[in-house]
Every structure is written in C-alpha cells, then in structure tokens.
C-alpha cells in the first residue's frame, strides 16, 4: 500500500474578495506529523478550511492533490470519504442529532450497503475511544456539540478522528481551551493513530501540545504563507523566544494577513 499524501502548491485563497493565503505550499505524507505554527490572524484556519472545502473560502489559484487526485475537484464529502479529516477550530452545533447517530452515520458513509458498521461494533468502538479520551458516557446521547463547553467540543473532534480513522488529518487549534490534563488525553489519542498510514497537520500557536506529540516538521506561518520551516527544535525556540526574532530576521512588520 502506498502512503497517503497531501500535496499543496502555491495556494491562494480569498474570503470576501480579500486574499488571505498568498502562496502556501506543503507536502504531508503518511507517517509524518507537521506542526503549523503562527500568531493569530496569519491564515492558519483559512488554510485548513480551504483544504476541506469550506463554502466561504474561495481558492483563486494554486493546486492541491490528495493521494494523487485533484483535491479541489472533489466535493466536501468526497474529500472526507477519500480520507481527509478536519478537526475544526469552531465546530457547528446541530440540534436534535445525537453524537452517536451522527458518528455512526459518518462511519457508514463510505461503506457499502452490505458492509455497514453494526450497532454492536459501533458501541464497542465508541466505548473504547471514549474511555481513552476520558469522556463521559452521556456524551453519546447529547445533541451534536449543542451546549458543549469549548473543551468538550475539542474532545468531540478528537473522538470523531479516532472513530473515522482518516488518512490525513488537519487539527486546527485542537489544544486551545484545554487544560494540561485534557491536553495529555488528546495527545494520547492522536499518538495512537501514528503510523505510516496516517499523516497529520497540527495547527497551533502554542508549543505546549508539541511536548506531547513530537512533530517531524515545524512550519511557521505569517502573512498567509510558510515563512520558516525546521524540525522540532524550531518549536522549542519559538516557545522560548516567541515570534519576534523571525519577524526581524525576515523584515516583517505585521505578520497578520487580510487586515483593513
């Protein structure tokens, strides 16, 4: 089996006519964990949303291939069924639909009529994953994200990740709003998936999650593109010294993008 791959070249993305991504490129393969770091407002969520096919973001130029296929040629659900997953920074709430019903429908979405996940298989798996993530049983029967705290929403995104077992996952600020114990639990869940069949892009503006999930590559994003890449030591340096030195080194005054 070939390793999964996501390859993005010179990507430009606009929202409401404003260009936010200005030539973003990355190659993520199975077995690799890439950390995308950067201060607020530098285009990280825009990248994640555009790759998943968020309706508000317009890809104006550049290309992306997922396992060799043109990503932007696929509908949102096709991208997901091909194995792309986005843990969202702000997941939607859907009233009246229980978490369990939703996750089970999602698991069955790319399975043939005669190969659906049985209720027993589903229960066994979700009990197992919820146990690992230290999520209360009642979680399953609550409406999807409705009235969830910030931390509960994040855990729910990770629960879905573990249930759906995608090939490439993009995790957008999965660590924000989590205390250190929750952070460890979430990291444990992600580390479980680590294998040659799984690649991951972890978007964060803090280094602390990376203490628990060792990245293979670290990229710094400013002004809608990657301005610096390195290994885990780069994250460490950012933790100690912040982002200012990079701005000075590259002569960047305002790292943000799309400001009025």
């Amino acid at each position: 089996m070939t390793k999964p791959s996501l390859s993005v070249k010179d990507l430009h993305v606009s929202i409401e006519e404003k260009e936010i991504l200005k030539g973003f490129g990355i190659d993520v393969k199975g077995g690799e964990i890439h950390a995308i770091m950067g201060p607020n407002g530098t285009g990280k969520s825009t990248l994640a949303s555009a790759l998943m096919g968020h309706p508000n973001y317009e890809v104006t130029s550049g290309e992306a291939t997922f396992n060799g296929e043109d990503l932007f040629d696929m509908e949102v659900d096709e991208r997901a069924r091909a194995g792309l997953f986005l843990a969202m920074q702000y997941p939607s709430e859907v009233s009246g639909v229980t978490n369990a019903d939703f996750i089970r429908s999602a698991m069955n979405a790319d399975r043939a009529e005669d190969d659906q996940v049985s209720l027993m298989q589903f229960i066994r798996k979700i009990d197992d994953k919820m146990g690992m993530l230290e999520i209360d049983q009642s979680f399953q029967h609550r409406y999807l994200n409705e009235g969830f705290s910030g931390g509960e929403k994040k855990r729910n995104e990770i629960l879905q990740l573990l249930m759906l077992e995608p090939k490439i996952a993009i995790l957008d600020e999965i660590d924000s709003g989590l205390d250190i114990d929750a952070l460890k639990v979430v990291a444990k869940g992600i580390n479980e998936l680590r294998s040659d069949d799984f690649g991951c892009m972890i978007i964060t503006h803090y280094q602390r999650l990376l203490n628990y999930i060792q990245p293979d590559y670290v990229h710094v994003m400013m002004q809608g593109r990657i301005v610096k890449s390195g290994g885990p030591e780069l994250a460490q340096k950012l933790e100690e010294q912040g982002y200012e030195w990079i701005k000075e080194e590259l002569g960047i005054e305002d790292e943000r993008v799309g400001q009025e």
């Binding site: 997901a80 639909v97 879905q160």
Partner: peptide, 26 residues
C-alpha cells in the same frame, strides 16, 4: 456551515440534509 460540518465527515449532501431536518423536528 452545519452542512459543511456534516459533509466534512463524509455524509453526502442528501444525508446531511436528512440529519438536519430530523434534528429540527426532533
């Protein structure tokens, strides 16, 4: 955005709509 969220987990447009309507009446 609800549609995007549900479809981003692999549900087809029809299935996502079905879930949202079901949830609305639930």
């Amino acid at each position: 955005l609800q549609m995007f969220y549900l479809m981003s987990r692999g549900l087809s447009e029809t299935e996502a709509e079905r879930l949202i309507i079901h949830g609305f009446l639930e």
